[in-house]
């Protein structure tokens, strides 16, 4: 009995929902979709990735580098000694600088403050990166 009633209800709901029918989208629905797709593919072409240095330049540079190092290792006799200029670095008083910082002690509070700032900064870098990635991500 209950089964029959359930079947009758099934049939009833089917009938009324079929009667309600489907909603009608705007007349230019398909045209809009297709033009959006075409616009998107044009944009994709404009923003398509082009490397700053083309691959053939990398190949040529690689070959030149290989030739250069090959020449150095195979024919070292051909290379004369190179005289590098000598500079005097005495003006840079390292000992004096170390002595100046000798009595300096960083307060604990300041140290923890800097440490916390560094941690917050690292977290923020990650969060901002994720946020911007989402912003510029074209699904």
């Amino acid at each position: 009995m209950e089964k029959d009633e359930n079947k009758a209800l099934e049939a009833f709901y089917k009938e009324i929902i079929q009667e309600a029918g489907l909603e009608e989208p705007s007349a230019n629905f398909t045209t809009s979709v297709i033009s959006k797709i075409q616009k998107d593919s044009q944009r994709a072409r404009i923003f398509s990735y082009n490397p700053l240095i083309p691959s053939y330049v990398w190949w040529v540079s690689g070959v030149l580098l290989a030739v250069f190092f090959g020449y150095i290792f195979i024919e070292p006799k051909n290379l004369g000694s190179v005289n590098l200029p000598t500079w005097n670095f005495d003006f840079f008083n390292v000992d004096g600088l170390i002595n100046m910082l000798n009595g300096f002690k960083l307060p604990d509070a300041l140290m923890y403050g800097f440490l916390s700032l560094a941690i917050f900064f690292s977290v923020q870098v990650y969060l901002l990166k994720t946020h911007w990635n989402k912003q510029f991500n074209i699904e």
């Binding site: 489907l22 909603e23 009608e24 989208p25 398909t30 979709v33 075409q38």
Partner: peptide
């Protein structure tokens, strides 16, 4: 791309109905 319009025409009513509801 134009072949896609056939698929859009085929399913647009149902997709739109689901969205409206």
């Amino acid at each position: 791309t134009n072949a896609f319009s056939v698929l859009v025409d085929r399913y647009k009513h149902m997709v739109y109905t689901l969205a409206v509801r």
